[in-house]
Design a binder for these strands. Structure first.
Lengths: 247, 247
DNA sequence: CGGGAGGTTGAAATCACTCAATTAGAGTGG
DNA sequence: CCACTCTAATTGAGTGATTTCAACCTCCCG
């Protein structure tokens, strides 16, 4: 564990999507005291039902919120990429209803709740940006509900991969309709409420249909418009402006 | 449309679950200027992609957030009962990703965004209570994700009915393991991602198993512990304390 | 070279859907 | 008070989607 200044600048970059800040506000965010930790893949960061004293900011790698039901099956609620706060809920509620684990090896920054509370009370603009981020998070959950409720397995998977493209692109981690997807088919299955066998079949069907190709953890989208039309993807719920470059 | 003072006291009652307020704060909430409207069943209150200037507070009746996909199927995201704010997201984001409609005839209060923004900026305790309410809302979405992803149709339906019991009880609208459920099986189906035919079969299976009885829109739970054990219901995500009276 | 995790494929079984027909109940007009 | 109508609930039969179980492959890493 080491404390490094300016690690929180990745948070600033993210929050600036949701509002413009003064120089003072910017400095307040980047100078948040953080504790950096390097974690292996598959490690829990936050555990269900526990009270937290810190919020967790992803600096590198992927993580997910999830819950394991009594029969042992896992439901993944969200994927988190660098710049994401994984558990701002813990800022306001005494206990979490989910766990958070890394999906890859990762570097995370823990920010003390007290400092975030100070930040919010002193700088209303920052509070608004956090509100917006939280609302987008909720909108993503709703989008996943649509996927499981009304979309076919193919459409749901395609829609999720669109969503990840737009998020990654906004974070500077994807371009040219291609990105690194460092998770297994089993993880996708747990997110979509499908079996890993079926995710495999769905992926090969989408490959056959020429919609995209996923191999060696690299996703290559062939045509953005075809893909979004196919799965009825409307990025407005993410409140990001995708800069789609037609390949 | 009429403006009535003190209609917002139902909002106060709800928010007081999430924090204690001073007399000044209480007054500020109850004296929010509201516009009351009486609506029939099945009317839209908020429409997808539109910008709102007011938040909608349920005074009487039920409403739901929903989205209709391109193939015409509807996914319901949440149910709202008296005391609920249906769209605080509109306070911070320029456009909604869902619509809101009444499920029964209803009375709703519209509160201007500007007044809510004032309230939040002047009274941090009220802002915290709103944060908490928003987080519980997100936790409910996650719970529905678990229902569609890992639970069987029977368990998911039973779990939803548990959730509604706890919410209604906290609002003083249910007691003695019984409540009025003023929605059709088709609405339940759209919430659970099932067909209305299957909801019907699942209901009759649960009735046969003696878990609960739903007839004439009255739900009677036979034994709370049996029910919660059956569907793996843990109410902690609602951050309410259920006062279950064993029948 | 061996082990293990993840990916792929096939076959059978299950869950839930669609389609279609029937019943029940609430409201309406004559 | 009775037909009429509409919506919701119910039931049956057949279909389709997805799961489970099992086997096998592949690749990476030690």
């Amino acid at each position: 564990m080491t404390a490094t200044p300016h690690s929180a600048s990745i948070l600033l970059r993210k929050l600036e999507r949701f509002g413009t800040f003064s120089e003072v506000e910017r400095r307040a965010i980047t100078e948040l005291p953080v504790t950096i930790r390097s974690l292996g893949a598959g490690q829990d960061i936050v555990r269900d039902h526990e009270r937290q004293s810190h919020c967790c900011l992803m600096l590198d790698g992927w993580a997910s919120r999830y819950q394991v039901c009594s029969r042992g099956k896992r439901q993944i609620f969200s994927f988190h990429i660098p710049g994401d706060l994984t558990d701002y809920q813990s800022l306001h509620l005494p206990a979490n209803d989910y766990s958070v684990c890394t999906l890859t090896s990762a570097i995370v920054a823990f920010i003390p709740h007290e400092r975030l509370h100070e930040l919010i009370s002193i700088f209303p603009q920052i509070a608004v940006a956090l509100w917006r981020d939280a609302h987008v998070d909720a909108a993503i959950s709703r989008s996943w509900l649509v996927g499981m409720g009304v979309r076919t397995a193919c459409e749901a998977l395609a829609h999720l991969l669109c969503e990840l493209y737009v998020k990654l692109e906004a974070a500077g981690l994807a371009a040219n309709l291609r990105y690194h997807l460092p998770i297994t088919q089993g993880v996708l299955a747990d997110a979509l409420g499908l079996s890993n066998v079926h995710v495999n079949r769905v992926l090969s069907e989408l490959r056959t249909r020429g919609i995209f190709t996923l191999s060696n953890h690299v996703l290559q989208i062939h045509n953005w418009n075809d893909l979004t039309r196919y799965c009825d993807f409307d990025p407005s719920y993410l409140h990001l402006v995708p800069q789609i470059a037609e390949a």
